[in-house]
Amino acid sequence: MLIDVDKCYGCMACVVACAAETNVPLGSFRTWIEHLVKPDGTRIFVPKQCNHCDDPPCVPPCPTGATYRTADGLVLVNDELCIGCGACVKACPYGARYMNPVKGVADKCTFCDHRLAAGLLPACVEVCPTGARIFGPLHEDNELSRTVRGRPVQVLKPHTGANPQIYYLSLPDEVNR
């Protein structure tokens, strides 16, 4: 996924669509928007979520293999194997995971894998009014792969070595935390 920070104006449609689509418990977030006010008064909105990392730090600590990486590069949780130890929540450098108090398991963004299976886009991508989020397979020729190859993109916390698969355009250093 690519997120163009310049196009986001903080309407929260993605946050609401995600919560409605995936039944996110109150107080927890699969995606959220961080708001930065620069000294010159410029307002910047940065959507964040699970980065579906290539080397996900959340997968190795899982004692039962409930957290896994699919061949398509999604990082998912198998609810039937999750014991709710919270190791993956502690291991995620991005604060993208939470314990689902209803299900008693770790929870996170799935890129709406149920929608992908039906040929649809993730809810947050589909609902974005400015097209700030672009989704697609990186190995194919599409807008996402062309942008990632052709323009200077950033990722969050590159020092973790997690190889995040969410790329940003115009990401300010102040929110790269």
Partner: peptide, 8 residues
């Protein structure tokens, strides 16, 4: 699918 070893 499960790279790494869980210390736990």
């Amino acid at each position: 699918a499960h790279p790494g070893i869980s210390l736990t």
